[in-house]
Simulated scan of single mutants.
Amino acid sequence: MYLLRRFKFYTLIRKYAYRLLKMFDKKLWPTIIYTVILFGLCVTVWQLRTDSDHVTEYSAIQYNVYTTNTTGYSYPLQTLPHDDYHRLINLKNFTFTIFNNPCNESNPTLLILVHSNPKNFEKRKIVRETWGKNTPQVKVLFIIGLVKIRRLKMQLQKENEEFGDLIQGSFYDAYRNMTYKHVMVLKYAIYHCPQAKYILKTDDDVFVNMPLMLNFLNLDLSPFGGSRMIFCTLRKNSPAMRSWRSKWRVSFKEYPDKVYPPYCPGWAIIYSPDVVFELYREAQKTDYFWIDDVHITGTLVAKIHLSHVNIDSLVLDRKEQTDALHQPSRCNRTFLYGAPNMNNREIKALWECVKTREVHVSLLKYIT
């Protein structure tokens, strides 16, 4: 029965095909041939255009920090758990024990959140007096944890009353709590400064070439913000330290792999807001690992399938920094950051060196 139905179907098809062919005059065949050729050419052009679009799209993925922005980006807080604000990774009942909100009713280009040891009063003072001034475009806050010494608590309260730029979380400021501190940076940006177009996480012994930084963000990138962006001094193939003599020692239970994923040393990282949110969301549901650089900018960055942009070439090395400090005429070297772990004198001197320099220069050619 099945074979009979198939035979009747094919017979019907041949019948109508023969009638259709008889309808065409022989003179029409050249027209048909030309039409087929034209159709083939159109398909080829369309395919080439599609392939070109794929190449362009791939290039945009590789270099989208230069070509895209998140104008009007808003953090999708509704996708977070209802108790998210009062939770920090595995800490319940989290709160900001010292809080300031300079972003209120403003639209800063850059939010800078500076990791600081609570005892580093002088370092914070130097940052405020040099590159870290609060302006309409730039909001600077210092991130600290709880302290046990009563005298130090009183000093911090007094400092905050005077400057209004401390953010303290409800965990103790300790070496193994640095991941809490870093995730608190992301939490603060999301909940309390969503207007910021870029977020810089840095340390209190770092020098930021602020005039050139603003030029870079507003002109090289976009005054409206970037997307899928993380700029840092990238580190690759770093081994997990197992020696008991190393302060960076991790056990196999803490981290079983031999080598860390590519990651950013935490002293200077620029994030776009969407990346801040994606990393924060992952951190909130991922097991705690105390080396924040590796955990957040390595493991979690890999989870969200993001590529780092390496800016090593925009950091002064020690020799260049020494030359610039002793010979101001050599301060023309294009850079975003001084060498890591600077002392107060070096930060002050480098600020004097750069604050009046020409900043209208593109940095894109320096980025790898």
Rank of each mutant, 00 (worst) to 15 (best):
M1W: 10
F24N: 10
K27P: 10
T31A: 14
V43Q: 14
L48Q: 12
S52A: 08
V55P: 01
T56Q: 08
S59W: 07
T71D: 09
G72T: 05
P76A: 07
D84T: 05
L88S: 01
I89G: 02
F94G: 03
I98M: 09
S106Y: 03
N107Y: 11
N117L: 04
K119F: 06
K119W: 09
K133Q: 13
K139R: 00
I144N: 06
L146F: 03
L146A: 09
I149E: 12
N160S: 06
G169L: 13
R176Y: 11
Y180W: 07
Y191M: 07
Y191P: 06
F207T: 11
L212H: 05
D220E: 08
M229L: 15
M229R: 03
R242I: 15
V250Y: 10
V259M: 13
Y260K: 12
I269E: 00
E278L: 13
L279C: 03
L279Q: 10
I296S: 06
T299C: 05
T299G: 00
L300A: 02
A302D: 11
K303S: 02
I304T: 05
H308R: 13
R318Y: 13
P328N: 03
R333A: 02
A339M: 00
E346C: 09
V354E: 00
T356W: 12
K365P: 06
